[in-house]
Design a protein around this nucleic acid. Sequence first.
DNA 1: ATTATCCATATCCTATAAATATGGTACATG
DNA 2: CATGTACCATATTTATAGGATATGGATAAT
Lengths: 311, 311
Amino acid sequence: MDIRHLRYFVTVADHGSITRAAEELGMEQPPLSQQIKQLEQKLGVALFERQTRGVKLTEIGATLLPRARTILDLQAQFLVTAHGLARGELGHIRLGLAGAVPLLPLIPLAIRRFRESAPDVTLSLEESNTPALCAALHDHSTDLAIIRPPVPDPTRLSVFHLLDEPTVIALPRGHRLAHQPVISLDMVAKDPLIIFPRELGPGFHDAILSAYQLAGVTPPLGQQAPQIAGTVPLVAAGLGVSVVPRSLSQIHAGGVTFHTLSEPAPRATLAVAIRSSQNMPLVSRFVKILRTACRKWENMSLEDQFPAADV
Amino acid sequence: MDIRHLRYFVTVADHGSITRAAEELGMEQPPLSQQIKQLEQKLGVALFERQTRGVKLTEIGATLLPRARTILDLQAQFLVTAHGLARGELGHIRLGLAGAVPLLPLIPLAIRRFRESAPDVTLSLEESNTPALCAALHDHSTDLAIIRPPVPDPTRLSVFHLLDEPTVIALPRGHRLAHQPVISLDMVAKDPLIIFPRELGPGFHDAILSAYQLAGVTPPLGQQAPQIAGTVPLVAAGLGVSVVPRSLSQIHAGGVTFHTLSEPAPRATLAVAIRSSQNMPLVSRFVKILRTACRKWENMSLEDQFPAADV
DNA sequence: ATTATCCATATCCTATAAATATGGTACATG
DNA sequence: CATGTACCATATTTATAGGATATGGATAAT
C-alpha cells in the first residue's frame, strides 16, 4: 500500500465520484478507478459501493476513512516539519552559557534577535562553566555554548571567537584606592585576590594570574568564589579584590567600585562552540547572529555597549 | 514522498548502515542509496551523515525519525484494521432491541456467543421500540435491530424472521381465574386490557387486538403501559389483564400469574432488521448466529428454553 | 602496502502508474 | 419508448521510476 492510494481513497470519498476526484487529482478517471480497485484488493475489503451515479462509501470504508485522513495529515506535517527544519524555522535549541555571560547585554540581545528571526524555535538556556559546557556539547545535551576559551578538548568541536572583553578590578567600599579611576596590578599586590576555581574557567583563570605575573607581583590568594560572578559579593564583604570582566561592573553590590586596569591587564575572551558535526541551519544561524552582533558591539561607544537602563 | 521512503529511512537509521538495511529490506545497496538520496532531496535536508564506516543520523534526521516511525505504525495499523474488518474480527456494532426482547434468554445467549466468536468487537445495546429502531437503522445510528414486525417502511431495510413466540395472559393476584392453567380470551372479555401504545409496536399491538376480535369479544381498554414490559406492574396493581410474550412470564412482580392462551391467541413475532446496503461481515455474522440460535431454540423443550436459573 | 568494507555512480531492465480509446449501465428527457 | 447523458469498468499502450548488476572511490584494518 502506498500513500498515494490513501490520497486517492480520501479524495474519492470526499467527492463521492471517481470522475470528479480524478479531476481534482489532475488525472484521468480510468487509472483512478484501477487504483481504487487495487487498494480494495490489497485490503481485502470493498471501500466503495458502485452506484449508477457516483460511488458511495461502504460501512467499512467509512470506518477506514478517518484513519486514512490522519495518516495523510501526519505525512503532510512530516513534510512541513522537514522543510521548516531545512530552513531553520523550527525546532529546539539548547544554549549553554559560561559564567557571567548573561551580564553582557550583547548576549540577551542576540538571543532576542534570533527569536525574532525564528519565532517557532524554542530555546532553553543553561548557565554553567566552560569545561562542563564542552562536555555537554560532546554528549549532545547542549547544541551551542558560549564559553571562555580555550576549550579543554577541541576535537569534534568548532570554536568561533566572539570578543575580547576588557577586565576591571573590583575594590571593596572604603578601599584605599577607591577613588583612583585607573589602577595597575602592582598597586594591589598585597590585597588578597578573590578568584574562582580554575576548573570553572581555566582560560580566564590563567589570564588573570599571568597578568599578575607580567606585572611582576604575586598576590595572596583569598577565598575562592563559587563562580565567576560570585567574586563580587566576596569583594563587597571586604575579603579582598577581584579582577572581573567589565560587564560585571553592572553589579553594584555593597558599594563595590570598579576601576580600569592599566596594562598588563587580562582580557576576558568569549567564544561560541558547537559540535563540528553540527549542521542544523538553526545553529548556524545563531552563530552568525552572534558574530555579527559582536562585530557591531566592538565598534560601539561604552555608553552604547552598556545602555543606561542596564548600568 | 512515499511510505516506502519512510520505511527505508527508518531501517537505515536503525542499522546505521545502508548495506545492512538493504539486506533487511531484501534489496541491494545501490537502489537503497539512491532512494535515501532522493528522500533527502525531496525534503531538502540531509538525514544522514555519510561516514567511512556506515552512516549516522544528522540532528535533523534524529528529529524526523520518530515522526517517520509513527507514520509507519499508523500505516501498519491501518492494514491490520482493514484486514480485521474484512474478516469481521473487529469493529463496533450497535444493536437495537425492541421492547421486552432482552427477557427472552435466547437473545443474551446469542450476544454472548457472538462475543466469543469475535472478542475484539465492541458492542453497544439500546432498548427502544420498533418504529424508532427502524428510523435508527435508516439514519445509521444503529447497525442491527431486533424488532417486532412489520416494519413501517421496509425500503432499504432487510428483515429476517427470527421466531414466533407464544403469548400468555397475565392476571393479577386473586383474580377469579388465577387457578385456571389455560384461559381463552372470551373468559376475560370484561377485564380491562392493559396494553402499550400502538406506536411502540404496531405489529404486536394489532396482533393482540385482532385475536380478541377473532374470539368475538371487545375488551374495555385499561390504562396504557409506557412500554411492552411495562404492562406487568399495572396488572399487578389490579388495573386489568394483559397479553404478553411468554418470555415476560419471567417477571414475578406482585403475584401476577401467567396463563396459557387457547386459540385464537396472538403470536409475538421477532425479526432482525439491517440496512440492505449493509455488507459488514460483522453484521452478517451476527444475523447468522441469531438465526441458527433461533432454529435450535424452537426445537427445544420449554424447560430448556427457559433454564431453571432464569425462571 | 594490501585487503576489506561501505557508499556512490552508471547503465540496463522490469514493473507499474497514467493516458487513450472504448464499452456497458442506469437515469433523465423529449 | 427511444435517445442522450453521466459515470464506472475494461483493454491497450506509453512513460516513468524503482530495482539489479557492474564498477569506482575512499577509508580503516591487517
